[in-house]
Simulated scan of single mutants.
Amino acid sequence: MKKLPATYRSFIETYPEIARAYQSLGEAIHQQGPLTERERRLVKLALAVGSQQEGAVHSQTRKGMDHGLTAEEMHQVVLLGMTTLGFPRTIAALTWVDDLLEPEASPKDPTADEPEQF
């Protein structure tokens, strides 16, 4: 697992009992029901995208990568929200996912190699 964000590490150090309880709750919820780990990761990413929380999208992207989700799968989750969330929010969420993906896994900007037009 990759290094946790500094804010979360600070929370764990400051409030260890609450952090343990929160972790236990999350584990219990994940074990409740028939969804596979992969399905749960996709749903959690979709919820983060839908709530438009950049930090949550980063967290769920990181966890998705740790559990083997591909860039294409995570991009599709974001794109599925376009007709519900709108184009600007979808583009924002794509950039948040791409913040964490390896550069070669992110879609290439088709204008990146073009000269600037004046």
Rank of each mutant, 00 (worst) to 15 (best):
E37F: 00
D98R: 07
G64V: 05
H75N: 11
S106Y: 00
M65S: 10
A19Q: 04
A71V: 06
K3A: 13
K44W: 04
P5F: 10
S10G: 14
E13T: 12
P34K: 09
T7H: 08
F11R: 06
L100N: 11
W96D: 14
P16M: 15
P103T: 08
S51M: 15
M74I: 08
E73R: 04
S59T: 09
F118Y: 10
E54V: 14
Q53H: 14
L47H: 03
R62F: 02
L94Y: 02
Q23Y: 04
S10L: 07
Q31N: 05
E37M: 05
K3S: 14
L45G: 07
K108C: 00
Q52D: 07
V78Y: 08
A56M: 12
S106M: 08
L80D: 11
R89F: 03
Q23A: 14
T83G: 09
Q53P: 00
L100V: 15
T7N: 08
K63P: 00
G68I: 09
T14M: 04
E116R: 09
V43D: 05
K63A: 11
K44S: 15
Q117V: 14
P34E: 10
P110Y: 04
W96G: 03
G50K: 03
S59F: 13
H67N: 13
G86T: 13
G86Q: 09
K108T: 08
E39W: 00
L100F: 09
I29R: 03
M82Y: 05
T84L: 15
E104H: 09
G50F: 00
A21S: 15
F87E: 01
Q31W: 00
Q23L: 07
F87S: 06
A46L: 10
G26I: 04
Q53I: 13
E13K: 11
